[in-house]
Amino acid sequence: MTLEAIDVRHAYGDETVFDGVSLSVDPGEVVAIIGPSGVGKSTLLRLLALFDAPDGGEITYDDTPIWQLSEKRRLEYRRRVGMVFQEASLFDASVRRNAEYGLRVRQSWTDRLRHEVADLVGKSNGTGQALEALETVGLREQATQDAASLSGGEAQRVAFARALAYDPEVLLLDEPTSDLDPRNTAMIEDAVMEARDRDIGIVIATHDMHQAERIADRVGVLLGNEIIELGATERVFDDPNDERTRKFIDGELIY
C-alpha cells in the first residue's frame, strides 16, 4: 500500500505547524523525516496514522482520499498500518498480551471473549504471529513476563513487535530509538530492515541523522513549517539542494 500526504497543512489553534507538506512512501521503502525537535515530525506521523484530519490538503491510502471515506471504511485502511512511538506505551499486561493486541482487535467479539477467558484460566498458549513478531525483536523467551518488568530498550522492542504482529503494510515510527542505548537501537534498526525486506513501507521520524543515513532510502528534511528537501538519502546528505539542509546536517543551523 502506498501512503501519501498531499499538500498538507496543519495547525494547533492559531499556530501553524506546517503548510504545503507532501510526502509518500511505497512498499518496501524506508523514508526518514529529519528535522529539529518540535518542528512537527510527530504531528505529520499522527496525520499519516489518521489520529486527526489535516486542516488542509489530503491524506491518501492507495490513492484513496482517506478522510472522504466513512469511519468504517477508514478503519479498514487504518488497520493496514502499524505505529511505534517514542515511548513504548505498553499495556499493563504480559509481553505476549501486548504483542497480541493488534490481532485481538481484529477478531470478532466472540473470539475475543474466548481468548480473554482462555487467558484468565491460563489455557492460552499465545498466537503464532505474535510470538513470531517477538522472535524478530529477540524477546520470545520473555513472552510470559509482565511488560512492566522490562527495561526501556526491551519495552520498545515489544512495542515494535506489537506493531509488526498483525502484518501491517506500512509502519510509522516516531523517534523509536531516541531513548535507547546503541545495542537496542541496533536491534530496532535490524528489525526495520527486516520489515522493509518483507515489503513493508516505513516512515521514520528521527533527529538522529546518522540513523537516517544508515537505514533510509529517501530523506525528507522538515524545517520551518515545510519539507525543504526530499530525495534519495545519499544525494541529500552529499549534495543538498537547499543551503539550510547542508547547515542542518553539519550542525551549523541555529533554530
Partner: peptide, 17 residues
C-alpha cells in the same frame, strides 16, 4: 496515560477498544 490510549488506537483499535 494518553500515549497508552494512542497505542491502542494506532494498533487498529476503535473508540470502544
Amino acid at each position: 496515560e494518553q500515549n497508552v490510549r494512542d497505542a491502542a488506537y494506532a494498533m487498529g483499535g476503535t473508540k470502544l477498544d
